[in-house]
Design a protein around this nucleic acid. Structure first.
Length: 889
DNA sequence: TGCGCCTCGTAC
DNA sequence: GACGTACGAGGCGCAT
């Protein structure tokens, strides 16, 4: 950061930019070359000089005091062309958006404003750089004031002025008065150029002194010119003399750079079509990194440890050999217990041949020295995606991170779950921190363990930046969480949940590879046979997996009636095929083929590859920052969508088996969504149904069909069940008619009847949409938020989508809150009973445990109680339990 | 070859 | 266009 004040001659640069940059215009045909040139100049200035103080001065429009002195002043200048004039407002907008101080005053030029600023601040002896190419401003140069022309990158200081004009800058005005300035139509004295003027002024010191003694000059053409143009010389001096008494900020603080308005800049650049500048907006200020320390010895590590013992907070980032935290090797760890000091401890860096580098710390020393700090229950630990580091430290170092845990990724997610990126560098960019990218530090090395080959010094810089950014981010996010009253949700639920999820992931679930293999073989055989039958029925081979080709076969070649269409062609989804199956053999074959192909590729084959060699278990990731509603998600593999319906689905579940001597214990909430709906809506009928422990679908059927629950047929119950589900999702009569294959009129009758009986539900739906419109967001019982900006969209499709989300999110999200609470409670219950009972999976409304056969009966009731008592609603929460040796139950 | 989007299908 | 939340496979078009 430079301490100098930069005074930019804005008007001069506008002209120079206009002429220097070739023709350029935006999509609307607006000329943009001057704005672009101006923006580029400022960009370079800001980037290269990183000024703390900067102001831009502009000429005033219309004639000024110099015109009053001399009508011909600048008379030789053509008027500003329209193509330039129309760009001026954009340049001023740019300067404002950049957060720069700017001045403009009636009747005076930019030079005068700069001179006034110099005069004011020169007294304070503040160093000043005038940014201009205009020689008139050289008058202002002195020991602390220089002139810099960024175009030519020339700096004019006192010495340079003296060399060029043979006089000190203080005398330049006198000299210039004689020389004149043809570009401004300032006359001067004919025949007098820089050399002559320099000589004269050096000798006499001023115009007055010169003319006092002009008689003494020997007779010459020059003397004659001086005498003849005496008035002109004095007038020229008045024209060139800069005004020093304009109103400008009196102290340096008035010139301090404000913060730029990124949104405004984005809008401006977008309007002007400045793609390159737009792109660059994303590159914020890089970190200086002068307080980043590489720990190269155990002695230094000991010193660091003693500092950390005093710490009140600790940000952590681990660098590893793999994205898989369970198996990753530790390469280094960076720590920060308060900005800006950060440390990097290298432990696993290797040379090109894979040999360990010297100047590192051993894993053992790291563990010994840091364990007390890492396991301190008092010291808060901050990380970005801390579950990753938690797992690495547990698996690679054998240390369980303790203390209040703080994950900035989760914090950012809670404040705005719909964010498109939760990556550390993207979030840091929003607080104006530019972090080095992983690709930059590894030099594009694509190996999984590329980081191990990074020089410790570069690794130190990179890793310290991350940990610095993480702490800075937390300082930014913490108040935002509090503002939204989400501190409780964050500290009491999400963060304590994180290590529970980490342990579930580390534990994994056993999968029997032999069963999978047998299944794979069977499926492959069936698929091969189906494939032949399909080709036969179609008349020729084609790619069955391509909906496009399938559409051609079904609807063009075979001429079957096509139903709905997708954006890209005919729909061939299950519902369509189902209808076609009555009239032709092919659709039925496709349905069966699709079913098996899906199971084989997504589950059987995929799972086989994910079984971990030494444990025979698969380890999913439970993602805590993905969904819009607060649910968890599961990936690699997704264990939340293992098939459960259908015969083959059950066969896949059979491949998930409990360890010898153990059984799976299943605990799932009964109708949690509808119970939450009852609580939210306070609907009398719904509350009553749940309080009396009735079968809700049968009850609903009885209501809408107007018969005794005893007379409800399975078909009637199915209809009621569809409605109950549909309600939670904001389904329309169209959707219901589709779902049940009934007419829209019939579907509408059912829905109307439903709302008659459950009027409170309808009121809730209206109110929650209203609330979303008013607040811009909806909340769950535990204060989780989802913003729904599109609830005000003019586009009906978008708006209605947001309305359905407004209805569904409090329900789905509250159910997610409840099961998270339950997981915390159950975790307490099972504390220190790891060997007897471990939580393995969460599937939205269900928890799966692996329990000692002998312990199952004893713990079952307690788990049920934990879950049922997780949160007190106005209806009871009911949990169904089951046991089995496999997930097939 | 790699990426993003589309369609489809699985779960709750 | 029409039912909310996810993950992921395979196809396909496009940029590299």
């Amino acid at each position: 950061m430079s301490d100098e004040l930069y005074l930019v001659d804005g008007s001069a640069f506008i002209y120079r930019a206009f002429h220097a940059v070739g023709p350029l215009s935006n999509r609307d045909g607006l000329p943009t070359n001057a704005v672009f040139g101006f923006a580029s100049m400022l960009r370079r200035l800001l980037k290269e000089r990183q000024p703390t103080y900067l102001a831009v001065a502009f000429d005033s429009r219309g004639p000024g005091f110099r015109h009053e002195l001399y009508r011909a002043y600048k008379a030789n200048r053509p008027a500003m062309p329209d193509e330039l004039a129309c760009q001026i407002p954009y340049i001023k907008e740019l300067v404002q958006a950049l957060g720069l101080v700017s001045f403009e005053q009636p009747g005076v030029e930019a030079d005068d404003l700069i001179a006034s600023a110099v005069s004011r601040l020169d007294a304070a002896e503040h160093p000043i750089v005038i940014v201009s190419g205009d020689k008139d401003l050289l008058q202002l140069v002195n020991d602390r004031v220089t002139l810099w022309d960024p175009m030519s990158d020339k700096v004019m200081d006192r010495a340079a002025v003296a060399a060029k004009y043979q006089v000190e800058p203080e005398l330049l005005l006198q000299s210039f008065a004689l020389i004149g300035d043809s570009s401004d139509n300032v006359p001067g004295v004919p025949g007098v150029g820089p050399k002559t003027a320099g000589t004269l002024i050096r000798q006499y010191g001023s115009l007055e002194a010169l003319y006092d003694q002009v008689d003494g000059l020997k007779q010459s053409k020059m003397k004659q010119n001086l005498l003849e143009h005496r008035e002109q010389a004095f007038l020229s001096r008045d024209l060139i003399r800069l005004k020093h008494d304009c109103a400008v900020p009196p102290t340096i603080d008035g010139y301090r750079l404000g913060s730029s308005d990124q949104e405004r800049l984005k809008g401006l650049y977008a309007d002007l079509g400045f793609a390159s500048l737009l792109k660059e907006l994303d590159t914020a200020r890089p970190l200086a990194g002068d307080d980043f320390h590489l720990v190269t010895s155990e002695h230094q590590l000991a010193e660091l440890a003693s500092i950390l013992h005093q710490a009140e907070v600790l940000a952590i980032d681990t660098e590893t050999t793999s994205l898989d935290s369970r198996t990753a090797g530790l390469v280094g760890i960076s720590l920060c217990c308060g900005l800006p000091s950060c440390w990097y401890i290298p432990v696993g860096h290797r040379d090109r041949d894979g040999q360990p580098l010297s100047g590192q710390v051993s894993l053992e020393a790291l563990r010994t020295m840091l364990q007390p700090v890492l396991q301190s229950k008092k010291l808060p630990k901050i990380g970005h995606n801390l579950k990753y580091d938690y797992t690495v430290l547990a698996c690679a170092l054998g240390v369980e991170l303790k203390g209040p845990l703080i994950d900035t990724m989760i914090a950012a997610y809670l404040t705005e779950p719909a964010r498109r990126s939760l990556k550390l560098d993207d979030l840091c960019r929003e607080i104006d921190l530019k972090l080095t990218s992983y690709g930059e530090v590894t030099g594009g090395d694509k190996r999984q363990d590329a980081f191990a080959y990074v020089e410790p010094a570069s690794a130190c810089h990179y890793s310290c930046e991350d940990v610095y950014g993480t702490l800075a981010l937390w300082e930014h996010l913490q108040p935002r969480l509090e503002e939204k009253d989400m501190g409780g949700l964050f500290h009491e639920i999400e963060m304590p949940l994180m290590p529970i999820l980490a342990k579930m992931e580390m534990t994994g679930i056993k999968v029997d590879p032999a069963r999978l293999e047998a299944l794979a073989e069977e499926f492959r055989e069936k698929l091969a046979s189906l494939e032949q039958q399909i080709y036969q029925a179609a008349g020729h081979p084609f790619n069955i997996n391509s909906p496009q080709q399938l559409g051609t076969v079904l609807f063009e070649e075979l001429g079957l009636p096509h139903g709905k269409k997708t954006k890209t062609g005919y729909s061939t989804d299950g519902a369509v095929l189902e209808k076609l199956a009555v009239g032709h053999e092919l659709p039925a074959l496709i349905i069966e083929y699709r079913n098996l192909a899906k199971l084989l590729s997504t589950y059987v084959d995929k799972l086989k590859h994910l079984i971990h060699g030494d444990t025979g278990r698969v380890h999913t990731s439970f993602n805590q920052t993905v969904t819009a509603t607060g649910r968890l998600s599961s990936s690699n593999p997704n264990l939340q969508n293992i098939p459960v319906r259908g015969e083959e689905g059950g066969r896949i579940r059979e491949a998930f088996v409990a360890e010898a001597g153990k059984v799976f214990l299943f605990a799932d909430y009964s109708q949690i969504d509808l119970r939450v709906l009852a609580h939210y809506s306070q609907d009398t009928a719904l509350l009553k149904a749940f309080r009396q422990g009735e079968d809700i679908h049968t009850r609903t059927a009885a209501e809408i069909f107007g018969v005794s629950p005893l007379l409800i047929t399975p078909e009637m119950r199915r209809v009621a069940k569809s409605i109950n589900f549909g309600i939670v999702y904001g389904m329309s009569s169209f959707g219901l008619s589709n779902q049940l294959q009934i007419s829209r009129a019939e579907a509408k009758k059912f829905i109307d009847r439903y709302f008659q009986l459950y009027a409170g539900v309808q009121r809730f739906m209206q109110e929650i949409v209203e609330q979303a419109r008013r607040d811009g967001y909806v909340s769950t019982l535990l204060n989780r938020r989802r913003y729904l900006p599109e609830i005000k969209a003019a586009d009906k499709v978008r708006r209605e989508f947001a309305e359905r989300a407004a209805i569904n999110t409090p329900i789905q999200g509250t159910a997610a809150d409840i099961i998270k609470l339950a997981m915390l409670r159950v975790n307490e219950l099972l504390r220190d009973r790891d060997s007897q009972c471990r939580m393995l999976l969460q599937i939205h409304d269900e928890l799966v445990f692996e329990v000692d056969e002998s312990f199952c009966a004893a713990i079952k009731g307690d788990i049920r109680t934990c879950m049922e008592q997780a949160l007190s609603l106005d209806v009871p929460l009911v949990v169904n339990m089951g046991e089995g040796r496999s997930l097939a139950k």
